[in-house]
């Protein structure tokens, strides 16, 4: 190999590495910019605040990573968050006053049953949508667009349009509690991310997810149950949304039908900024975690800098497009 070739190779490798690290570099750049403009940004209290804000849609973004890896999309996550939050609230309260009672004496149930109700509701919602995608071959975009209004409607029906609030201490710990300096939702997010990372990178199921996203025909021909994988992935994002709904209700000490509005876009943005391809087959959980943090840092930084909420929206949108464009530029250079 001549020197010119070696140089070219190392240049391509450098760009390839840069492409992998692009979201991380972008994140660090934002942190440095915000910290230099407003030192308060770096206070541990603020950093944990960011993490706490990130954690709920982060959990959902982890599920969304699987969906996007198999070339799918889920627009219903925000609605499922609201619906499962209300399910948890109803169980925790033992019913809704004046409308129906779940227990004979009108007392509420243990937080664990409430959490189970939320997760179960989310998983079933995901499973139903997965069936439509996998078995009826309806495009995921259409199924989950429908699901978005169906589950929001169910949430409105359960709560009769109003909020259900005021839960016991143990219920509230999952959203507001701390272990040492770390908020509990952050730990839940970390645990979900870790498990998802292990599943994707170390198990046969993870490989099947990548295979289905990379070439569904080849996957089927090699003995992979493509419908089964599709179904499982939608059930999985349902599970994540249900869990997110429970944690959100716990954190706000209230559940209502408008909760989680816009979560679908935030979650999709986190996944895509994190480098997972919308065409499926490449990307992963590590990128999504960084993508979620990036979105959180951005929002928090703008608040701390007293940027008006209207301007914030404009900036967030522009920065999302810029981050993805930068990522694509780097990837092109590395070929």
């Amino acid at each position: 190999m001549t020197k010119a070739q070696a140089d070219e190779l190392s240049r391509a490798r450098m760009y390839a590495l840069l492409g992998k690290l692009a979201p991380l570099i972008f994140l660090l750049a934002l942190v440095i910019i915000f910290a230099s403009l407003q030192p308060r940004f770096l206070l541990p209290l603020n950093l944990f605040n960011i993490l706490r804000q990130v954690s709920i849609y982060g959990i959902i973004a982890i599920g969304m990573t699987f969906v996007i890896l198999i070339r799918g999309i889920d627009l219903s996550v925000g609605a499922v968050v609201a619906m499962s939050g209300l399910c948890a609230a109803v169980v925790a309260k033992g019913g809704i006053e004046g409308r129906f009672m779940l227990s004979a004496d009108g007392s509420g149930y243990h937080w664990a049953l409430a959490a189970l109700a939320a997760i179960l509701a989310g998983t079933v919602a995901g499973l139903l949508q997965g069936m439509a995608v996998a078995w009826l071959s309806v495009p995921a975009f259409v199924v989950t667009l429908g699901g978005m209004t169906v589950f929001r409607g169910i949430a409105l029906t359960i709560g009769n349009g109003g909020p259900i609030s005021g839960f016991d201490e143990a219920f509230g710990w999952w959203g507001r509690g701390m272990i040492g300096p770390v908020p509990v939702p952050v730990l839940i997010f970390a645990a979900v991310a870790l498990i998802a990372w292990v599943v994707l990178t170390q198990t046969r199921f993870g490989r099947a997810v990548y295979a289905v996203g990379s070439n569904p025909d080849a996957a089927r021909l090699s003995g992979i149950n493509v419908s089964g994988v599709t179904l499982s992935v939608y059930a999985l994002i349902g599970f994540c949304s249900g869990l997110g709904g429970f944690v959100l209700a716990s954190r706000l000490n209230s559940a209502e039908a408008v909760a989680g509005t816009g979560y679908e876009l935030t979650a999709i943005a986190a996944v895509v900024i994190g480098g997972t391809s919308l065409y499926g087959g490449t990307g992963g959980v590590a990128g999504t975690v960084i993508g979620a943090l990036l979105t959180g840092v951005l929002l928090n930084g703008l608040v701390i800098l007293n940027v008006s909420p209207y301007t914030q929206q404009i900036l967030v949108g522009l920065i999302i497009v810029a981050a993805v464009a930068f990522d694509h530029f780097i990837k092109r250079q590395s070929r």
Binding site: A211, S214, S222
Partner: peptide, 16 residues
């Protein structure tokens, strides 16, 4: 169209 997983590694393609 029917055999390779284009974005995945040689090793992963073999293990499919």
């Amino acid at each position: 169209g029917l055999s390779i997983l284009p974005d995945r590694s040689v090793a992963e393609n073999f293990a499919l």
